[in-house]
């Protein structure tokens, strides 16, 4: 499923995906309509532009995962939208890829997303590093509840952020490719978990816990 308001991009992305053997179940220009058809279209992967005319890519991510937890969201972003990208990833997006990426990189990202891997570009690694620092330094989280990166995870993220491939990192640190991938994935899982804890805390503080706590009343918020 492709969500992008720019017709040229939407068509190009859909065509690339179709050419590469993916089945494009829907290509839409608005976030709200994407969320409406999500049940009928049953996409495995949603490629969503971060900036949409109606709702943001962050909300699309949240909505898609609420309606279809099994789906995976890949954010398509222009550069310079770091905060929004970070919010989308915290809301559960599997990763993001810049619009300036080549077709091969893009298709590779979609394949990895479909396979359940995080798509960790150097840019995302930098954002995640920064977010962990912010959480650790922020007085609101008190430091103790803030998720922390292990030294190894920080080291791996820093290498990803300076453009090293998993293979190169594995060679440098004498680890297996899979281990490197796990370290990277773990950092995202920690962020998602923390985001969920924050949502629940917010709900409790604002008296929403009774509604949210009822079994079967809502969807998976992550």
């Amino acid at each position: 499923m492709v969500v992008d308001d720019h017709p040229m991009w939407r068509d190009a992305v859909a065509r690339d995906l179709a050419d590469a053997g993916f089945e494009v179940v829907a290509a839409l220009g608005e976030g709200a309509s994407a969320l409406r058809v999500i049940g009928a279209a049953q996409p495995d992967v949603v490629v969503a532009d971060l900036r949409l005319p109606d709702i943001s890519g962050v909300e699309v991510t949240r909505g898609v995962l609420a309606a279809r937890p099994a789906a995976r969201v890949l954010i398509l972003s222009a550069s310079g939208e770091q905060q929004d990208v970070l919010d989308a990833v915290k809301a559960g997006a599997a990763g993001y890829i810049l619009k300036s990426a080549s077709r091969a990189e893009f298709l590779d990202a979609v394949r990895r997303t479909a396979a359940g891997d995080a798509v960790f570009t150097p840019g995302l690694a930098g954002l995640v590093l920064g977010e962990f620092r912010r959480l650790a330094a922020s007085p609101a989280t008190g430091g103790q509840h803030a998720p922390q990166l292990t030294d190894r995870e920080a080291e791996v993220l820093r290498m990803v952020a300076t453009g090293l491939s998993y293979k190169q990192i594995a060679e440098r640190l004498v680890l297996s490719h899979r281990t490197v991938q796990n370290h990277v994935q773990n950092t995202l899982t920690k962020l998602h978990l923390h985001n969920r804890v924050e949502l629940v805390r917010y709900a409790i503080e604002h008296g929403l816990d009774s509604a949210a706590g009822q079994p079967g009343s809502g969807h998976d918020v992550g």
Binding site: H6, W9, A12, K99, S100, R103
Partner: peptide, 17 residues
């Protein structure tokens, strides 16, 4: 952002290919 940048990004992508 909604017009020129999208086209430039697309030109870059298609051109590289």
């Amino acid at each position: 952002h909604d017009s020129v940048l999208q086209v430039l990004a697309l030109v870059q992508r298609r051109g590289t290919e």
